[in-house]
Simulated scan of single mutants.
Amino acid sequence: MGVSKPLSGYTMSVVDRDMLNQAHLYVLENTEEVLSYIEQHMIHIKTAYPKFRKRTKWLQDKHNSTFIQWLRFKVQSELNEEDNHGVSENLRWLAAGPNMAVPLYRSYLIKGIKFNIKA
């Protein structure tokens, strides 16, 4: 009775890239394992753009627009090294990012109750 599952066939929908990146960044910034990478990225930005190191809003905007790609590259380069720097499976998946294609179902069974989704 506590089983939740889709009841219909699905159609694939492609999520808006900007919205997906915003959600992905939110998840990354609220994951303990990623915090040290955020600090490293901020140091990287301040070093690469020394004229802007005191401009908090500019630094945050630059971080927001470049962190996902930087993290993907950083984790991949750590995985390519001999000791893998202890990169966990979770961090590897987080750095790879979510899939833009999402299955959509017309009906679900949630805790024994059928829900129909209107298109």
Rank of each mutant, 00 (worst) to 15 (best):
residue 41 H to P: 03
residue 11 T to F: 09
residue 51 K to Y: 08
residue 56 T to Y: 03
residue 19 M to E: 13
residue 27 V to Q: 08
residue 4 S to I: 02
residue 32 E to L: 10
residue 78 E to Q: 08
residue 113 I to A: 07
residue 111 K to L: 15
residue 87 V to W: 03
residue 84 N to H: 07
residue 115 F to V: 09
residue 5 K to I: 09
residue 67 F to S: 02
residue 18 D to A: 14
residue 107 S to Y: 04
residue 77 S to A: 15
residue 92 R to Y: 06
residue 54 K to S: 10
residue 66 T to W: 01
residue 67 F to M: 06
residue 113 I to M: 07
residue 114 K to T: 13
residue 43 I to L: 13
residue 81 E to H: 07
residue 6 P to H: 09
residue 36 S to G: 13
residue 98 P to V: 13
residue 113 I to G: 01
residue 81 E to T: 05
residue 41 H to I: 08
residue 34 V to P: 00
residue 22 Q to K: 14
residue 23 A to L: 10
residue 86 G to T: 00
residue 19 M to Y: 14
residue 106 R to S: 15
residue 1 M to K: 14
residue 36 S to D: 15
residue 7 L to S: 10
residue 93 W to V: 14
residue 33 E to P: 01
residue 111 K to Y: 08
residue 80 N to S: 09
residue 52 F to K: 15
residue 95 A to S: 08
residue 100 M to L: 15
residue 15 V to Y: 09
residue 24 H to V: 13
residue 54 K to H: 08
residue 77 S to T: 15
residue 95 A to M: 02
residue 109 L to Y: 00
residue 75 V to A: 06
residue 117 I to G: 09
residue 74 K to P: 00
residue 110 I to M: 02
residue 46 K to P: 00
residue 65 S to H: 08
residue 29 E to R: 06
residue 39 E to V: 15
residue 76 Q to L: 09
residue 13 S to L: 11
residue 14 V to P: 10
residue 8 S to G: 06
residue 53 R to E: 10
residue 76 Q to A: 12
residue 60 Q to H: 05
residue 85 H to P: 00
residue 55 R to M: 13
residue 32 E to K: 05
residue 90 N to V: 13
residue 48 A to H: 10
residue 20 L to R: 02
residue 39 E to P: 06
residue 3 V to K: 12
residue 117 I to S: 12
residue 9 G to I: 08
residue 107 S to V: 03
residue 30 N to V: 04
residue 96 A to L: 13
residue 12 M to D: 15
residue 94 L to R: 00
residue 89 E to F: 11
residue 105 Y to Q: 12
residue 12 M to N: 14
residue 53 R to G: 05
residue 63 H to G: 05
residue 111 K to C: 12
residue 94 L to N: 00
residue 69 Q to G: 03
residue 58 W to G: 01
residue 105 Y to S: 05
residue 79 L to F: 07
residue 51 K to P: 09
residue 79 L to N: 04
residue 12 M to S: 14
residue 11 T to W: 09
residue 68 I to M: 06
residue 84 N to Y: 03
residue 91 L to S: 00
residue 74 K to W: 01
residue 79 L to R: 08
residue 98 P to M: 10
residue 34 V to E: 04
residue 16 D to E: 11
residue 1 M to D: 15
residue 25 L to G: 01
residue 79 L to G: 05
residue 28 L to T: 01
residue 51 K to A: 14
residue 65 S to V: 06
residue 118 K to G: 14
residue 40 Q to E: 11
residue 57 K to G: 02
residue 37 Y to H: 02
residue 20 L to E: 03
residue 10 Y to C: 15
residue 2 G to W: 12
residue 7 L to P: 10
residue 61 D to Q: 09
residue 37 Y to C: 01
residue 103 P to L: 04
residue 56 T to H: 04
residue 78 E to G: 04
residue 66 T to G: 06
residue 107 S to I: 03
residue 115 F to W: 03
residue 15 V to D: 10
residue 79 L to E: 04
residue 43 I to C: 09
residue 92 R to W: 00
residue 21 N to I: 07
residue 99 N to Q: 11
residue 65 S to N: 08
residue 33 E to C: 02
residue 86 G to K: 01
residue 30 N to D: 00
residue 42 M to Q: 04
residue 41 H to F: 10
residue 108 Y to H: 11
residue 53 R to K: 14
residue 87 V to H: 04
residue 89 E to Y: 14
residue 46 K to T: 02
residue 22 Q to W: 12
residue 75 V to K: 03
residue 110 I to F: 01
residue 63 H to E: 09
residue 25 L to Y: 01
residue 75 V to T: 06
residue 103 P to E: 01
residue 115 F to M: 05
residue 23 A to N: 07
